[in-house]
Simulated scan of single mutants.
Amino acid sequence: MSRTLQHETVLPLWNEPPAGTPENLQPNVEERSGNPFRANRALTGVVTPSLTAWVPEQPNGASIIIAPGGSYRRIVLDKEGLELARLLAPLGVTCFLLTYRLPGEGHANRADAPLADAQRAIRMLRIHADEWRLDPKRIGFLGFSAAGHLAASLATNHDRNTYPLLEKEQGVSARPDFLALVYPVITMQDSDVHTGSRDALLGETPSSLQKDERSPQLNVTRQTPETFIVHADDDPSVSPMNAITFYCALHRAGVKAELHLFRDGGHGFGIAGAQALPVAKWPDLLSDWLMRIGALAVGNESFGNDQ
C-alpha cells in the first residue's frame, strides 16, 4: 500500500479479509447514546481491520495508535477513539484509530486475531514512516479497557508469530516505542479477571496454559516499552488490580512506568465521562508524560528505554 496520508484516510490492514474470517460476517454500527448531540457508537462484525488517520495541522512526527475497548465484543468508536484523537492533535501527534477483529465472532485464529491486527498496524506505520512523515522510533500504542489487554499483549508479545509476514515486513519490529493503558483489562487468570473479555478471547473453558500465555503481566521483560497507566479504584467492571499487577511487573523488570489510580471514576469514563471528577485530569497527565519521556520532542535521539 502506498498513498499520501491525509486526515481521516482509512488504511485497511490487509489487502483482503484475513484467512479464517467468517464468510457471513457483516459490519454493523450501533448508536447507543440517548443524547443526540453526543455520539456513542459501537462497531461489531469487523471484516476489514483498519487504521483511520487523524492528522494534526502541525504534525511533529510522533504517532499513536488508539485502540478503543468493548470487552473484545465490540469497538467503542467515539468516547474511546475520536475524543482522544481530538485532544492529542494540538500536541502535534498523528493518531491512528484502530479497528481490530473481535475474537468471539468466529475467526479461525481466535486469540491471535486482534494481536495480529495490532502487530500489522505497527509494522505498517514503520514501513511508511518516511512517506507519511512519521518518526519510526516514536510510535506509541494506547488501549482502553479490553484493548488495554491488546496493547499490553502487543508490548509483551510483539514478536509472536501470529501471521505470515510479507517480504517488506521482514525485520520490521512490531514493538511500540511507548505504551498507554486506560482502565485496562490485563490478566486472564481467575483472580481479578474480567470474565467477559476472557470468554470472548479464549472461550469459556480456557486451559491454564492459555490463561498464562495470554496474561501480559507474566510476560513482561526489560524490553517491554515504557508505560503510562490510569485506572479508577471504584471500577465496577475491571478490577484496578489489573493495572496494579501490570505496573508491579514492569517495576520488577526495570521498565519505567507511571501509574495513576483515582478513588472515583468507575469504568469507561473516556474523556467526556470523566468531567467533574478528579479522574478528568488523566488526559493532562498523559500529555505531560508524553512530553517528559520525549515522545513529542522532534529529533530527540535519547527517546525511550535504553534497550
Rank of each mutant, 00 (worst) to 15 (best):
residue 256 K to F: 10
residue 21 T to C: 02
residue 54 W to M: 13
residue 306 D to W: 06
residue 86 R to D: 12
residue 221 T to S: 09
residue 123 R to D: 08
residue 38 R to T: 13
residue 70 G to Y: 01
residue 63 S to Y: 07
residue 236 P to G: 04
residue 186 I to T: 04
residue 212 D to P: 00
residue 103 P to H: 11
residue 142 L to D: 11
residue 198 R to H: 07
residue 167 E to F: 02
residue 282 W to P: 02
residue 20 G to M: 00
residue 177 D to W: 11
residue 129 A to E: 08
residue 274 A to G: 15
residue 289 W to P: 01
residue 130 D to Y: 05
residue 50 S to T: 14
residue 277 L to C: 01
residue 306 D to G: 03
residue 185 V to C: 03
residue 199 D to M: 04
residue 299 G to W: 03
residue 225 P to A: 04
residue 294 G to Q: 02
residue 234 D to E: 09
residue 231 H to G: 10
residue 32 R to S: 09
residue 301 E to F: 03
residue 187 T to D: 03
residue 279 V to T: 15
residue 94 T to I: 14
residue 302 S to E: 10
residue 300 N to T: 03
residue 1 M to P: 12
residue 88 L to F: 15
residue 39 A to P: 09
residue 55 V to N: 05
residue 195 T to F: 04
residue 143 G to S: 03
residue 299 G to V: 03
residue 115 L to N: 11
residue 128 H to K: 12
residue 298 V to L: 07
residue 198 R to N: 03
residue 34 G to Q: 10
residue 143 G to W: 03
residue 215 S to L: 02
residue 79 K to W: 00
residue 204 E to A: 10
residue 224 T to P: 05
residue 238 V to M: 06
residue 238 V to W: 06
residue 180 A to R: 06
residue 128 H to N: 07
residue 117 D to I: 06
residue 20 G to L: 00
residue 144 F to V: 05
residue 18 P to K: 05
residue 215 S to T: 13
residue 253 A to Q: 01
residue 6 Q to P: 04
residue 228 F to R: 07
residue 169 E to A: 07
residue 195 T to H: 04
residue 222 R to I: 11
residue 261 L to W: 13
residue 159 D to R: 15
residue 241 M to S: 05
residue 206 P to D: 08
residue 161 N to V: 09
residue 44 T to I: 14
residue 241 M to P: 02
residue 227 T to A: 10
residue 110 R to G: 07
residue 169 E to K: 12
residue 202 L to T: 03
residue 196 G to C: 08
residue 14 W to N: 01
residue 104 G to V: 03
residue 147 A to E: 08
residue 126 R to V: 02
residue 150 L to F: 06
residue 163 Y to Q: 04
residue 145 S to H: 12
